[in-house]
Amino acid sequence: MNCQQLLQVLLDYVSRELVVEQCETVEIHIRSCERCSILVTSYKHTVRIAKALPKCGQLPPTLEARLRQAMAAHLKDDAGTTQG
């Protein structure tokens, strides 16, 4: 395996989707290539960092007010339709 070949299977390697033999081939290359070893580690860190990002953001107060207003109007319309 060379560096370009490693790059092509890196995503599957990190997701543990490679078969055992392929996985071993990657690891043999990593052990002998410091550049690829660093690339693989930093690639894994990149994945881990993204997972640590917050899933929810604070709603801006103006948006919160706007959404509440829109929801209230919608529910009112809905109630009117049901009654009518």
Partner: peptide
């Protein structure tokens, strides 16, 4: 996937990272 290219410049080691990192606001 076959046409993916890796970094062209030098690559440096990253700081160690815990399994579930907690990011500072700045990060």
């Amino acid at each position: 996937l076959a046409t993916v290219e890796g970094p062209t410049g030098p690559v440096n080691r990253w700081n160690e990272l815990p399994e579930e990192p907690v990011l500072a606001a700045e990060q």
